[in-house]
Design a protein around this nucleic acid. Structure first.
Lengths: 214, 214
DNA sequence: CGTGATCTTGACTGATTTCAAGGTAAGTGG
DNA sequence: CCACTTACCTTGAAATCAGTCAAGATCACG
């Protein structure tokens, strides 16, 4: 149940001039290296919202006793960091090299931006509710099957690349890395998926997999 | 894991003239009897938001295979039904006799109302995130201890009344009724709480209980 | 090529569920 | 007012799913 806390934080944040943006006051485009923190848990003021332009980001919450819960994974096009209180309850970290558009909330508050943030929050709420159902009401094989299907649907390519580690998947699904590994092995043994190394897979029997995902 | 679906729906909804309200176009006050549905899952358009004036409400999501997840419990003063899509993903039902202020979202859209709804959504998101952590990262005794503590803190009275059944608690915490019953029994045996019947309890050793809740 | 991180696999353990039975409380009709 | 009914709650025994512990394999990187 104990989860290990992340990789080294590598390299300083590099700011870019911030090219043309869709935000009123022009957000700033920032680049992050794998493992780098975008914002910290319960520390950084939740004054900004973020749009991921390239790469993959993970949000996670670390509990006092070392247990970790991954909140969600975000990919190109997603907004993240839309949180409620004065600080972020979840930290955000880059899984891969990332390009992020950062928007200061109060500095660029227009009705349009407000509406966009509100809509992003609604999406976040819907995803969190879905995640809650996944955590509470499903078995390990079901969780893993749904995880792979979701990812495959999201990218809609033959060969899907996993940007996250087994530990990340485990902390997202409320399982251990050993169970993740076993379920993936079983799915492959039964011909539902085919792995190319540990971080790439292909879906072979979609309908069967969807059935497992119930 | 299979959860039984609710009680009979009793009596028709009784509308009241709708006294003075804080909403622009004046919300309507509606009364519900125990077990009655406020809105249905994936069916009723999510065009209204609700403020609970009296009583207790439960939201729940029913899966195809009969499994049920309780989303949250709401008490006097809480807003609920702030959901994202065109329909409600969770149904809402009265646990006790309830008085609810119903506000039509679009009919009374003012900047003030918009802000209120947005803030209610932020609260909902925060609670859902907290609930997610509870479901994923804790053991049965911890879940039950936290549930009782939260409830006691919420009402801040010596003798707390549980408006929900064991099945509701189980479906909220992702456990079975048997486990709920055993954990409650154990908490009482160890002197952390004292029950008066099945639906009322008193906290005896708060610090000890808080420690269990970790 | 070596080193450390990541991933896989096996055997065992334990928490929670499942299955089954019995008890308690509240409401109903006689 | 009491017997009956039904829903709700509790308790025990057995089974199962996922976790823990431990060892080994693979991968990435210097």
């Amino acid at each position: 149940m104990i989860a290990h806390a992340h990789q080294e934080i590598s390299g300083p944040t590099r700011f870019r001039p911030g090219g043309p943006s869709r935000f009123g006051d022009g957000g700033v485009t920032v680049h992050y290296t794998p493992g780098e923190e975008v914002y910290a848990q319960e520390e950084d003021a939740a004054g900004c919202v973020y749009r991921l332009l390239k790469g993959a980001v993970r949000t996670s919450h670390l509990l006092a006793d070392g247990r970790r819960q991954v909140g969600d994974f975000y990919y190109a096009g997603d907004m993240f960091g839309v949180e409620t209180g004065s600080t972020h309850r979840f930290a955000a970290e880059a899984l891969t090299a990332c390009e992020v558009l950062v928007l200061n909330r109060s500095a660029s508050s227009t009705p349009e931006v407000d509406r966009m943030i509100c809509s992003a929050m609604a999406i976040e709420l819907a995803r969190t509710q879905e995640h809650m159902l996944l955590l509470a009401r499903t078995t390990a094989p079901e969780k893993v099957a749904r995880f792979l299907l979701d990812l495959a649907d999201r990218f809609n390519v033959d060969l899907v690349t996993l940007p996250m580690s087994r530990q990340d998947m485990a902390d997202y699904l409320g399982l251990t890395i050993e169970t993740i590994s076993r379920m993936l092995g079983r799915l492959q043994a039964n011909g539902f998926v085919e792995f190319v190394g540990a971080r790439q897979f292909r879906i072979c029997r979609r309908t069967g997999l969807a059935q497992l995902a119930a």
